[in-house]
Design a protein around this nucleic acid. Sequence first.
DNA 1: CGCATGAATGTGACCGGTCACACAAGGCGC
DNA 2: GCGCCTTGTGTGACCGGTCACATTCATGCG
Lengths: 345, 345
Amino acid sequence: MNVTGHTRRPASIRDVATAAGVSYQTVSRVINGHPSVRPATRERVLAAIEELGFRRNATALALASGRTRTVTVLTANTTHYGYASILQGIEESARAASYAVGIGVLESAEDAAVAAEVQRAADAGGGIVVIAYDPAGVRALDAVPAGLPVVGVVETPASPPGGESPWVWTDDREAAYQATRHLLSLGHETVHYVAIPSSTRRTSARTSGWRQALKEAGAPEPRPVQSSWGPAGGHAAALELTRDPSVTAILCGNDDLALGVLRALHETGRAVPGEVSVAGFDDAPHSAFLTPSLTTVRLDFTGLGRAAFALLHGALEESAPVAPHPVSVPELVVRESSGPPPSGP
Amino acid sequence: MNVTGHTRRPASIRDVATAAGVSYQTVSRVINGHPSVRPATRERVLAAIEELGFRRNATALALASGRTRTVTVLTANTTHYGYASILQGIEESARAASYAVGIGVLESAEDAAVAAEVQRAADAGGGIVVIAYDPAGVRALDAVPAGLPVVGVVETPASPPGGESPWVWTDDREAAYQATRHLLSLGHETVHYVAIPSSTRRTSARTSGWRQALKEAGAPEPRPVQSSWGPAGGHAAALELTRDPSVTAILCGNDDLALGVLRALHETGRAVPGEVSVAGFDDAPHSAFLTPSLTTVRLDFTGLGRAAFALLHGALEESAPVAPHPVSVPELVVRESSGPPPSGP
DNA sequence: CGCATGAATGTGACCGGTCACACAAGGCGC
DNA sequence: GCGCCTTGTGTGACCGGTCACATTCATGCG
């Protein structure tokens, strides 16, 4: 219906107004659900809106009202499972709240580049979510000018900040604690840890959860091996670790790292879990299908994204639902890569 | 500098104008690089801009000029490697061209939901890129109203469309052809194919590339096994395929599928590549670290994203660089999962 | 009956830019 | 000296909404 061939300028509220025989302001009232519009008038306006295919111009709305209904996600990466899942969670909630989602990739951690990207996000007008798991993200979070609504998706802080902090995180400490206890309970004398880089702290929450479990069990505490994010890092770390034949259990900072570790163990002819047990973090989609399938701790990244948006939404709008936005607690998923240590000689 | 405590309304061109003692229009000329502004005046305006920390309001710019400098990416998923890489490629180019990137997730393939999402993308004003590898994406691409600038990232079309078509794709046919030839050259009698769903056609380009290679080699052509996208699909498909002991080579529609296939082969006690060879598509980051590492065909998703943006950019702006936007040709990556078939009994 | 009250609607300014046009000053040709 | 073109600058309207206020009319109440 109403196809007139040419692509013509979309109808504005004034077009609707003249079509309905009212003023543009009345149209504005109708589309905003203002109470004092006579039902008959409302009907006429709605009919005109329908007929002209009117859609409220988002740009004009933003300019006039100041509210942009936009959230920009700043992230160093879109391809890693965790990052992408957080993004997906944010988008999901944002869509439900009729917010537009913008994305800016922090390609470099260099200050000027980060600042430029933050500026671009600020220009978009709405709120900002920064995924701050890495140096670029942490710098971006720092670089956001005070006063702008921003939520950081961060590593678990050392001590829970009081009151309302604009951050969300998963309980990494608990996750590491669970995984470590699991390995210890299988009979391993201790558990070695291959760490992902911590963006903020010398000792990440994962590291301290691991350490706590060891301490409680009275197990010796080996020096954690610092690694990178990807499988290559895990591969290198494992090659080094396995020179020591007493290593029987390796906890990895994420599943990618664990993948590299598994690979290295295979290359050096160590059986998993026969000789060495391996556990990861995140429960990436492929982890269940590896050979051996990977014992890991599932983290609720999507829920984390939803929580981030909820927090931002609350800061942006008085009326926003202050509903609880629970992030599921980490859940240990035991698979084939962990088992009892080899029995003594 | 110039920190006055309160978060105050950002400076507008009129603020800059009065500060520089000129009219707002002159300020507009300066920020747009209009030639006829006296150098002295320009200097004064630039100084005022600097001092007030003026930044041009993107919303007002969009409203007044009609140009939004935005590209919205519609996709069914953000977590799959291919999708996420395309997004990353788009963002990269968009950033270079000072475009904002929006994202909309097509959560359901149901028409109304897709239409709503397309509407939201259209409301954003700028161009649209649709990743149309799946039914939701294909429907979204169809649902974009004529006249809106849109580029589809699509499966390789059956026959190359003439002239300028608003689509980009990788050469899937060539990729499948290469992988199949590789397996045949190792001595396999034929190659079985586990297909990802084709969004548009009964026979995808991957399928026909595979078929062509078989035909050229005079190899028998088994019926392709239709599967899903993820590892679980590959797992199920392989369990079925391997009931037939004559199957010695399996080509998988993507690396995820291949992962499931490897897993199933392991579970059924078939050695890879000793008894069965496996190859995938995409070269996902983890594929090199699997055990056995996966032979696959690397596809340039990031380049594809860049090409999509370039095409859109050209459609959006007369002056856009019409530079070639080459997508790298698929590259066969031979790893451990493929080898000669078992020698006869 | 007069007036305050509230519902229903309209008018003008404004958000922060751009665009089309007007206008003043300076240089040049005749 | 006059007209004309070019250069530099300013004015007003406009993009499509919202907001604050004015206006009209029907009602309730003393």
